[in-house]
């Protein structure tokens, strides 16, 4: 995401946001579907801006806790964003005090259907994806000045009872990882999300797949996913390991490396031919708000939890 690097990595933007604003980021797929307290508040804000109706509301908004819009833009570049922030801040400073405050209920009601929360006792695995290239030194990150050449981040969620099952499998000597786990990884996480939102793999796209764990927690496997008459695919190998402290993961590190080709509806701009793509799946303690972002593939919740069906 160029904005993450070019705008929010800018020290002046960071200072202004940290000192003068409450910052929040959201996925419009969920927000525009919410009809409860939060959904109504969100709509009140965005409909004061240029992006009304049923289309996308993507962009950058500044508003009060009452929902009064003070600024909007959807331009890239730190200077434009700084201009928008300063103008919005000037409007804020000129507001009478009664428009700067609000009485906000402790809990927003009515939006539970469009909210995804990690179940109690669950654990989060960070999923990093990056376009790679072959060089004299081996496999290295693709040039950073191209769109799609930064690391994408997603999250793999595992529920408490699932962690117990994985721990027991290893304690019993290992074997094929269960379908609910391996299909969740395959269909929703081994995807190229470096240029936007990829489609999920469907079962019919899985041409070959194996993922097993041994008694020491060592994981190995291989995969081949192909769709659209062969014009989109990803094939490679996985290896790494996991270990437990009781029924909690204490370590989880997987590397998936393969050759990817083609593009989807929302992932245009693929490199020509088959090119290397790598994913690292790594346990996180999930202590920050940003670690609580739901897996991209969990929009259809049942489909994510029961990926084997």
């Amino acid at each position: 995401m160029a904005d993450r690097l070019l705008v929010f990595g800018n020290p002046e933007v960071q200072k202004l946001l940290l000192e003068k604003f409450v910052t929040v980021a959201g996925d419009d797929w969920y927000q525009r579907r919410k009809t409860g307290d939060e959904g109504k508040f969100y709509r009140k804000v965005v409909e004061q801006g240029p992006r009304k109706g049923d289309g996308t509301r993507q962009g950058h908004y500044v508003f009060t806790a009452q929902g009064e819009l003070l600024g909007f833009n959807n331009n890239r570049g730190a200077e434009r964003r700084l201009k928008m922030l300063r103008e919005a801040l000037e409007k804020w400073e000129n507001l009478p005090d009664e428009r700067k405050t609000a009485s906000v209920a402790a809990e927003a009601k009515g939006d539970e259907e469009n909210r995804r929360v990690l179940p109690d006792g669950g654990q989060v695995i960070k999923v990093y994806t990056r376009a790679l290239e072959k060089s004299e030194q081996g496999v290295v990150a693709a040039g950073e000045d191209e769109v799609g050449n930064q690391t994408a981040v997603d999250h793999l969620w595992l529920r408490k009872e699932e962690l117990g099952k994985l721990q027991k499998l290893i304690a019993d000597g290992g074997g094929d990882l269960p379908a609910w786990f391996s299909m969740r990884v395959a269909r929703f996480h081994l995807r190229d999300n470096t240029r936007g939102e990829p489609e999920d793999w469907k079962k019919e796209h899985i041409k070959s797949w194996e993922l097993k764990v041994d008694a020491k927690g060592q994981v190995s496997g291989h995969f081949e996913f192909v769709k659209k008459d062969g014009d989109l695919g990803f094939a490679g190998q996985i290896r790494g390991g996991m270990s437990f402290d009781g029924e909690r993961l204490s370590q989880f590190d997987l590397l998936a490396l393969g050759d990817q080709w083609g593009e989807g509806t929302y992932t245009r701009g693929a490199r020509p031919g088959k090119t290397p793509l790598g994913l690292v799946l790594q346990l996180t303690e999930a202590t920050m708000s940003r670690d609580q972002i739901p897996p991209q593939g969990i929009r259809w919740e049942q489909g994510y939890w029961q990926a084997e069906d």
Binding site: R4, K20, Q31, V46, V62, A65, G196, I293, Q296
Partner: peptide, 29 residues
């Protein structure tokens, strides 16, 4: 990552809210 939580904090701290909204979470994909 929760708009309502941000709204509560804004009301409590007396600051405006900055929202970054994308199709697909902007801090993720």
């Amino acid at each position: 990552v929760d708009l309502w939580e941000a709204r509560q904090k804004a009301a409590k701290t007396g600051k405006p809210i900055y929202l970054w909204e994308m199709d697909g979470h902007p801090l993720g994909c």
